[in-house]
Design a protein around this nucleic acid. Structure first.
Lengths: 194, 194
DNA sequence: GAAAACGGAAACCGATCGGTTTACTGTGTG
DNA sequence: CACACAGTAAACCGATCGGTTTCCGTTTTC
């Protein structure tokens, strides 16, 4: 399984998994061993462990985004597309071994907002907010900027709940997002100017 | 300042601060040095570092609760009492050096829901939800159990936002809680049966 | 086929990890 | 006075930390 990809890919994959599962304090030795890569190679591919943290987070961004957000070919209503994010989060939690949003979790562990990993986390969260914002504009929401932020907060709040409770969410995220969108004038099946 | 309290109190104080500021991976040596307590004393006061993590979290619970929740003497409406929590969170973030809810943060770092520290975190979060629930019942909310959970999620979502953005929240938590309570039939100045 | 680059295994560095132990200094208490 | 107790300082333990270096085999490149 491992020797097929390049050392860089193997490292990014192993780092993404182990930093998430064990936290950013896992040792470089364990990381390299899991990736089947020597420390020498690692340190000539990445300047430091901190850079590897940031790069592994960034490299998993697109896949994580695809996992949560419906694609452009999904032509359901903006409201349903937004709720899809929360339903997929629900499934992710229910599938077990969910340890919270990797980006928020890493930012929490790093403590330092200027750490390159924290910068990546900030960027990813903004992308999620941007997705919500696009859909809310399509739905003709009154204040899409505020509601997009609120939906992101609900997403992270549901994530926090899943972590501290270590139990399935039971649809509470989608229910909350739904209630909030109702309050913001985004109703079922509604499109702007239609 | 430090030698006045007992070694146990000094340790719990230093642990509460350093585990929050630097994460639970801070070393026992640094902890004892900050507390002015020898490692020998520490290890005969606490079975292990893990136990110290849990005990320090638990010992700060009441103060943190008092910091966020209005006291019983505050006779404003349940809705206003609930919003007070989010306003105080806002102030906490604005005052700087906010690194997220200590309980959620520790649970995230520990990764293990059976860790004694995670158990304390779960208990504290339940207490916050219980506070919301009591106020919602007083206000005659339709589904107080669900809304109490949703408010807790908004609290933790706002906390996550503060961490990843490293900026003031600007009242977004209270605004979201407000919108959600409106949707749940909890309006300004409203008391049940009055 | 020679040379250069790639990359893994492992030793090595000083520092720190969680935890134990020894030695010593107070501070009462009989 | 003697004794026990509480507590600090510091050495000590094996393991691991992030990071560097040496060695050597394999692959690519001309």
């Amino acid at each position: 399984m491992s020797t097929s990809a390049t050392p860089r890919e193997r490292l990014l994959d192993a780092a993404g998994e182990l930093f998430y599962r064990d936290g950013v304090n896992i040792g470089v030795d364990a990381l390299c061993k899991a990736a089947g890569v020597s420390k020498k190679s690692m340190y000539q591919l990445f300047r430091s462990k901190d850079e590897l943290i940031a790069e592994s987070l960034a490299s998993r961004g697109p896949a994580y985004q695809t996992l949560l957000q419906p694609g452009a070919e999904d032509d359901r209503s903006p409201r349903e597309r937004i709720l899809t994010v929360f339903e997929r989060q629900d499934e992710l939690v229910a599938s077990g071994n969910y340890l919270g949003c990797p980006y928020v979790g890493t930012a929490v562990e790093l403590k330092n907002p200027e750490h390159p990993g924290s910068v990546v986390a900030r960027h990813f969260k903004q992308q999620l907010t941007d997705f919500f914002h696009r859909e809310l504009v399509k739905a003709g929401a009154e204040d899409p900027s505020t509601v997009a932020i609120q939906l992101t907060m609900i997403f992270d709040g549901a994530s926090a709940r899943a972590v501290v409770r270590a139990q399935p969410l039971g649809g509470i995220g989608a229910a909350t997002a739904s209630a909030l969108m109702n309050a913001a004038g985004v109703h079922a099946g509604e499109f702007a100017l239609s």
